[in-house]
Design a protein around this nucleic acid. Structure first.
Lengths: 214, 214, 214, 214
DNA sequence: CATTAACCGAGACGGTACGTCGAGTCTTGGC
DNA sequence: GCCAAGACTCGACGTACCGTCTCGGTTAATG
């Protein structure tokens, strides 16, 4: 197990670790513990363990960690899941910045890839459900993860409206939803068969051109 | 209790009742029990009881019903939730059939109203999470509820493509998602403030016209 | 099942049947039902079913009888067990009446045989426990079964005291216990290996002669 | 609760505690829990709670202890009852060792007193019934409790046979039963009225002298 | 001979207890 | 003070049985 920790090097967001100037005394925390726990959750989810069987009890046991230690770092199962989700976030993709259409496709492609990724797809469906049931957590997840991606889309759209590539009177928020939601829907609800390679392009083109004949 | 049952008249989908010619023996089931249970779940959800506290134990207790009786009708919490969701389904809206745009707006308006409805909004967010965590239930829900609504949208789009109101080479599935997903996203993830009255119209118009300047 | 009823012909004491002049109307009770129930209990006990698994539910099921029918005849499990015990009572043995010693041995032999009998030994140990836990039933059993046997012993002892075969100042009750209790103890607590053929004789002789050297 | 535990100081036989050199890790068991549970059972029995209402559920509830904790220490209700019984065992009485008759009377007097004791009488009748229904438990109880007392009686009898105070050809086992069984019978089956002060003496004398006139 | 009332099997019903498991806390010894 | 282990309280899980109740259907005595 220890080696898998070193190998995967999941970036633990260290939610509970005091970042400030609080003077800490006594034995410092073993960073490997946090990593091991999150790594264990991911492993179990990939192995197909149903969410209902993902008890703190089992997580601690399989991670070879004391239950109290887990609770010292996360307030509960949901807080842990939040960190699990964050450990899956990739860096925002580089945007070419030339064509609005291409940038939007690039952003959607990131979503598509994550929906297909072995880990993410297994995890997203299950962990998101867990988080959504807890409003505070959902809000936090929304703030820190969702909003960032939405903002990226909005920025591209605003740029397009400014350069004349898109309508000037664009409702940025609405069009952002129009473009992102279909991909989100498919990634969350459907099978991976419904995430073909050309989907991002088709969605963006449809949104750009509209349905009405010209 | 009896009166509240009669009063609300939730339509229980009678999941477990044998519809066929199976000869029933022994004391017949009391229909009021099924109604009372579902009604109790809805009441608790409306009262803001978190999903985690919605135990079968509590449901049975508050419905004044034996636990075994609940399990006799539903295989588990998820199966019960499925019926709870079904009890919320409204009839499909009447479509005027004249303008494609108006019909699409009408369909989205139904979704918006349900997202706003006191019951549905409270229930959808929580119960859906429950169901999604169980693949078989999710599939069944998808089959019986989601698919029907998607088909309605597809039918309107096909009609539009046939009458020349929309592009003839329309990708019906894709455009259906483009129109429905934004509303679903908002209804499920966001606050009710994000479901303004004119949203259906704006979504449909955006999808019809596209973003690119003409 | 029906044949086994006819075959064994257990004498059901018909505890609940009104013997008096209560005018009965409607369909009379089916006598075979009572027999079948008691017969089923005995069969299950003989098959080694632990007392804890002897539920009314199971008894009714295995007897092919409705639960309500059982409760129509017996107030509860204990009342049923009482009748089961009574169905095992044999007639009092014939006493030769010549020698006090031989009569006592005859009486003890009856106990010994019952302790050895396949049915009785299996049943006594288990059913008695059940009954003893319910004071009213225990009292009734004591009245109707135990007392009769004790009286028989007392009668023999009194006869012996009168004829000079025994001490004239005999404490009949005490000596009755002295003779009967060892046999009861062994029959109830021990294995059948501790009920050898000559036990009644040895007990009676020991009680008659005493331990002190003469 | 804590004080009542300290006050009564029931000696818990610590059935499940490993006595050996097994290295124990984790939080050690709270000895007060075992005591509190047994004390609660005794209290309930004294209060006349019928055996049938003595559920593990209730015992745990009234002892202020988690159900799982009870099951961690005892395999079931019967195992618990076994320890309850053992907590009632007194030390063997001191025997004067001069007269066989007096020693036997002393031993019987112990039984009589226990039959009269508030706790024991209430408990014995009910708990014994429970235990007897479970062969393994009964065997264990027999081994650890009954056999010891029988051996004490046998030892006295053997001594008497050796010193000439009793017959040399004495059947020790049989005579042991002859003396102990009547007391056991009365203590278990009858009311306390049937345990008069002079009963031990009368039983022993009757057994010693026999019934036949000299 | 039709009525009628109690019988019967089946099984649903509200309860209660079963024995297990997980959540989150606490308490050891050891690092 | 951190850590693994594991005991602790609490409460839900899903099952089984209790004793009662309602069904459809039978069966004998009554009218």
């Amino acid at each position: 197990m220890t080696e898998s920790i070193a190998a995967t090097a999941v970036s633990v967001p260290a939610s509970a670790d005091a970042p400030g100037a609080v003077e800490r005394r006594g034995r410092p925390r073993n960073a490997a513990v946090g990593t091991a726990v999150i790594e264990t959750v991911l492993r179990l989810l990939e192995e197909g363990v149903p969410l209902g069987e993902l008890s703190m009890e089992r997580i601690a046991r399989e991670a070879g960690v004391g239950k109290a230690t887990v609770y010292r770092r996360w307030a509960g199962k949901e807080a842990l899941m939040l960190d699990v989700m964050r450990s899956l976030e990739h860096d925002a993709p580089e945007l070419a910045g030339e064509s609005v259409r291409d940038d939007l496709v690039t952003l959607l492609e990131t979503l598509r890839r994550r929906g297909l990724a072995k880990r993410s797809s297994a995890v997203l469906r299950t962990v998101l459900a867990q988080i959504k049931a807890h409003p505070e957590l959902w809000r936090e997840y929304h703030e820190k993860v969702v909003r960032v991606r939405r903002e990226a889309v909005h920025a591209v759209l605003r740029r397009g409206a400014a350069t004349g590539e898109l309508r000037a009177d664009l409702d940025v928020e609405l069009m952002g939803d129009l473009i992102v939601s279909p991909m989100l829907s498919r990634a969350m609800f459907h099978d991976r068969a419904e995430l073909p390679e050309d989907l991002p392009g088709r969605i963006v083109d449809a949104a750009l051109e509209g349905i009405r004949p010209r």
